Amino acid sequence: MSTVLVTGATGFIGRRLVPALVEAGHDVRAMTRRPEAYDGQGTPVGADVSDPDSLRPALEGVDVAIYLVHSLDDPDFERKDADAARNFSAAAAAAGVSQIVYMGGLGDDDGELSAHLRSRREVEGLLGTDGVPVTVLRAAIVVGHGGISWELTRQLVKNLPAMVVPKWVGTRTQPIAIDDVVRYLSGVVGKEEALGRVFEIGGPDQLTYREMLQGVALAMTGRKLPIVVVPLLTPGLSSRWLALVTDVDVTTGRNLIDSMSTEVLVRDTSIRDVVPGEPITYAESVRRALAERAEAGLEK
């Protein structure tokens, strides 16, 4: 088994991934800026991707580093994420890390990518600058309790009896359950056949955002939601509207909306050769997300 460092160990994906890696028998280091407050599994280590000096001791003796860091809520996120990736690449190479696993964004390279997806692509390349093989998993919307995109969807359905929405609701995407994301991330750790490769991951359903909203409405209320499309609702106006009816801030909302006009579908299913298994349907991933929220004592 491997010594695995998980950055963003307290985040949406990280806090689920660490226990899965421990269960698989790995020696796991949970990287966080506040190790004294960490109460999850694994060994907490204090480090910050913006501080190169802090990364060296955190990565010492690590075989595989899983990189789950992004700055989507920062207006200058592209520069910050690029600088952080450069820092991490250099520190990982100096420590002799044999593999970096990165969670990227799904989307055709030859298409017009949003700033958010462009940044994810840039980070993919920068993480491998100093020679450590990088394994990239590209995903669209991840469905699970606590995820930003999921919370956006859930809160819209909960707070609005009807919706006036931009034309991006007709864009197709391929959502994936958080359980499958964790399974794939854990499954590529230490795999020789995964080194230096980019994998596309998604659930079995290709849906428009309108269909996703309706699926959540049916699960939460048992009925469909009236939706009216307004072609002239700009990303700027959309993000301000989201900030009014959800707790997602304007900057994060704008970055997410910019990505929603781009069709993001899985074209390559080779991940299944490395990590076999059938992914969870959208309906089931929604059911699990709502059930986890209820178990946490929160209302729908």
Rank of each mutant, 00 (worst) to 15 (best):
G40K: 01
T32G: 02
R86A: 13
L152C: 08
L244G: 11
L117I: 13
L298K: 10
S119H: 02
V4W: 04
R272C: 02
A139L: 05
D247M: 07
L265H: 03
V248Q: 05
D258V: 03
A294R: 14
G236A: 15
R138W: 06
L242W: 05
R183E: 06
G190C: 07
T269Y: 13
G61Q: 05
G187M: 06
L55K: 02
I201D: 02
E112T: 11
L127C: 04
W150P: 12
V198G: 06
E278A: 15
A9I: 10
Q214S: 11
D27W: 08
R197Q: 10
D268K: 04
V188D: 06
A291G: 05
L232S: 15
V143E: 01
G215R: 14
A217V: 12
E193N: 06
D130K: 00
G203S: 09
S186W: 09
L72T: 14
I148D: 13
G25N: 03
V181A: 06
E295W: 00
H116S: 01
R56C: 05
M220Q: 14
E211N: 11
E299P: 12
L152N: 09
V230D: 12
D51G: 09
V97Q: 04
P235N: 10
V6L: 06
T221Q: 14
V250Q: 07
V132F: 04
S2V: 07
Y38K: 05
E60A: 15
P133I: 01
S50P: 00
K167S: 15
E299V: 13
G125M: 10
P35Y: 01
R15C: 06
D205I: 10
G187T: 07
D48M: 04
Y38L: 09
A296E: 13
